[in-house]
Design a protein around this nucleic acid. Structure first.
Lengths: 223, 223, 223, 223
DNA sequence: GATGAATGAGGTTTCATTCAT
DNA sequence: GATGAATGAAACCTCATTCAT
């Protein structure tokens, strides 16, 4: 099959798999059902993705790629703006990405729960061989730090030009932003992927608050 | 068996299960291994906990209870302090709880990922009957909002007495704090449960920054 | 389960498997069908016999054991007869065993086709790991030479006492008898396990002829 | 493709298939491997031979044809000799054919195991439709009795001219010879296709013994 | 209550065979 | 005719859960 066509079919299978995983979750999803959803047989499914976990990582990779794309777009759009504005835009971009792609956000959180910084730590057992052998696992490793790096870069640009006044370490600020966003996404996820009020709080307000607080942090000259 | 003895055995099983889950994760953990770790047979294990998920929820309940206890302790200790200080202390308490009980934090995040606000939403399928039937599930429902409520209460106390100046909704602020903490815990988890530097950032600094930023938020009079 | 009960169940499964293999042959037999025939599930079947090939070897072992038993009985019954008579009785015993246990004879021929004398010859690939790993394979190795040895012994007894006059090597004579019988069994098998006439020849006559010819061979003084 | 070229390619495929079957046996041989060995694709392989079993029967047919050719040659060579000598020569021819074409002998034994005299017996299930549909199956049916017929003819010639004195039925004698040879071939097969000693017995001696015994049988006037 | 055996569900794999281009 | 992809059947395997004793 031409590489082109193969890519398309792969993509089609991934979309079908997303639909199934989204509906019933990873554990309850049956490979047979996913195959049926994609209009292929189980064996064909396995010829594309060697295991259920690998298939899930393929989805994760797609999610991560999509995230990186929106990051890149945001960077391009805000290139002429101040470093502060650009940094905040990145945060907002991430939050909106998760709102718009609820399942992607779940998948990404799963991924970040799975990968542990210590490459040979005592929790390695959680990485099954199906995961370690997945080509997508390697590809993800290449991508998953980019959002951090880009954010650090924008913060440093902001510092250089003066729009960001804090003297805190850029990576520390990045992690702060990251945790804010991840926490937001978690709560978003806990509300079932919709921004309808949780505890009578509109999640849109929560998002705004996060941005506002971050802005304040960046604007403070003294730590 | 006397109720007392039974309780002890139950506790022993839970501790053994924690050890196994912690090492290999929920999915990879086998009931056989847990039974072996507890020095009992699988059937006995099942006589105590009717399903793997119920066992996990029992652990979750223990984690949630422990969290509530430290919250209560923090409330007691800070009862004489200002509402602002008490609120920040709660946040810090939560973060330190997660540092000290890394596995509990994972379990609690799993729980909050699982429960969805909309009780009959389209993703209900993820709540398996094993979960719904678990007695711990009901018990957890009774507990899981308490940290929120207590935090709201302290914020309102702070507003009333003037230590907290923001005019933002108390629950909104609570959620903001919650998401910060959850994000922090996620990052903590991504660093393998230890506070060793991630991206050359000391997680202690990150924690401090979260508290500092929260403090700033509460101290701002205008939104 | 008590060893006793386990043995019985194992035996029951083997009998069920024989029925299925006999009807449709090794290749067409499905493990599911064998399990169903035994009134158990496939998994239970696998817990007793780790592979289809191992199950087949278990049957082979049973066949070989049964053959050895009838050999031993024939030896006992003919202990007081001459070595010549005893030797011929062994041949007849083998042929009748195959007539009475048609499927056993097929299984034994399969086995003798499979095992090759050269332990590391170029055809080793035919021994799949499922075969090599089978405990029955080892057990069979211990049994499969006994009929030869016993026959050699009887021939030597006959030579010693004078009932067998040939000066040919006892093992050579044994192999001659063996090949006669194996050939007879092959033809028997080609006639579908029944002694009904083949090419208008009554297989009973063929059997008699083999015995008669063998008798003549043993009675010849000069080679 | 010209008929001629097609024949050549067919032959080439058969030779490649023989190499693979010989090495790993029918069951373990994969159509992929055979196609690779022949330097063609699987689909092309299937365009020549509609099934694995048909391919095997094609080989069998080639083996049977080769056997018939050596029989015919032996008949021609011994036409001027006595019926006894000619009959014994046929036996020897068969045995030597099997020594020289070890794989052919395996294939032929497989074939004779498969075909059952009773065409609608209870074991018919073993004849898969792939076999029944094979054009080689029909061709084989035409050939497989010829060796018997020719042997019967020579025995009757011997009886007529007096070189064979036994009063036994010619077909009975033929079957006796056949079973001797088949048994010999089985033992040959058990020794891995080479005539090296088995149980310290030189297979050449065994062959001679079979001929000698057969000769004695034919020379006996009384049954 | 404890135990070993059994079950059911579904993931994974291998292959002969067929389809579409 | 040749090719890569797909199919269907069935072996094989793991594990949560349950049964019988």
């Amino acid at each position: 099959m031409k590489e082109d066509k193969k890519q398309k079919k792969e993509h089609h299978i991934i979309q079908s798999a997303i639909a199934v995983f989204e509906k019933v979750g990873f554990k309850n999803a049956k490979m047979d059902d996913i195959a049926a959803a994609a209009g292929i047989t189980k064996v064909t499914l396995y010829s594309y993705f060697q295991s259920k976990e690998n298939l899930y990582l393929a989805i994760t990779y797609q999610a991560m790629s999509a995230l990186n794309i929106v990051y890149k777009e945001a960077l391009a759009v805000n290139a002429s703006k101040s470093g502060l504005d650009s940094t905040l835009a990145l945060m907002e971009t991430f939050m909106e990405f998760c709102e718009n792609h609820y399942f992607y956000s779940e998948v990404l959180l799963d991924y970040f729960s799975m990968v542990r910084s210590s490459p040979s730590g005592k929790y390695d057992n959680k990485l099954t061989s199906a995961v370690k052998d997945s080509p997508y696992f390697d590809k993800l490793r290449e991508l998953h730090n980019l959002p951090f790096k880009w954010t650090v870069k924008e913060i440093e640009r902001g510092k250089a030009e003066g729009s960001i006044k804090t003297q805190k370490d850029a990576m520390l600020c990045t992690l702060h932003g990251w945790t804010s966003v991840v926490g937001y996404v978690k709560v978003l996820s806990a509300s079932g992927g919709n921004v309808s009020p949780l505890f009578k709080v509109d999640l849109k307000e929560l998002k705004q608050l996060h941005l506002e607080v971050a802005k304040a942090m960046f604007s403070q000259g003294v730590s």
